[in-house]
Amino acid sequence: MNQRNPSVIPAGLPSGGAPSSQAKALLFSMKRIRAVEETIASRYNEQKMRCPTHLSIGQEGIAAGVGLALNRDDFMMSTHRAHAHYLAKGGNLPAMIAEIYGKVTGCCRGKGGSMHLVDEEAGFMGSTAIVGNTIPVAVGLGLSIKLRNTNQVSCVFFGDGATEEGVFYESVSFAALKKLPVLFICENNFYSVYSPLRVRQPEGRKIHQLAGSLGLPASHGDGNDAVRVYDMARRAVDGIRRGAGPQFLEFTTYRWREHCGPNFDNDIGYRTEDEYLAWKKRDPIVMLQESLLGDGRATREELDGMAATAQAEVDGAFAFAGQSPFPDPSEAYTGVFK
């Protein structure tokens, strides 16, 4: 099936040298996301999480970097693969796990599931299950910020597939036209479900260049280098907050597991084990850990402590979800209108 590796693996070492507080915050954010999703993966077969679940294991660097660059009252929107974004923005973890369990304590009271997350208190305004579908909504939030003059930023995540949707062009174009405070983040993981970029986009296309032609600054970076993501996102956010209009950032990365579900699927033939292993060597968590250990900005004990803290929080969230009640069946027939 694969004539050549469709993914482009960045060369070189990650950017080091970030102040240790920021680097450690990024590392903890990634470790926490990884712990959440590994726990989901390991418990998925219990059949208690009864909804389609899209894991972003391997892609955490982008969520962590962008999340750290935003303020709590900035807005964020996302896609079907939203756990990392929600968590990096400060979304409530127990409410997310309870939502995946279909419990009344979930962030949508069990009506949304993994693909519909929301925590407005953390500025996470929603994720939805239709490719490209939240891009204009985030632009609308940008319009509202401009109308209300509140100096916030509206950030939206989407994948490479979304840049094939008409609504992507419509939305970016309007944001550029009105100079809206919107940060577009394209996570390019090279696949839309099982379809590689080469069957979807012409050879040689650079998504960020295409976006740039729509009338806004656009650049590209290694999404597995969380420090680099953070630096680029922070600079973009600063510019947007100064009123310079929207910006577009494309980050390359790689989804380790299957499109939807907890398993690995390199054996089914749409991509190769070699490709996966090459990306796994560039694990965003391991790369940043090694950088921190290498120049003495962190000790092994500190890192172990982070992992233990994250796992304890995750275990608590799963216990909360497990113990929470289901919504009453009558709730299915409420809430269509406000």
């Binding site: 807005f75 929107m77 204009p136 632009v139 609308g140 939030l141 209300r148 419509e170 174009s173 309007f174």
Partner: peptide, 26 residues
Amino acid sequence: DHRVFDMPTAENAMTGVAIGASLNGI
């Protein structure tokens, strides 16, 4: 013209823009 304006010929996105703006009180 900040409250009453023409728009790009982009019916789908501009509907999403309305939805997003409404989430923040517009």
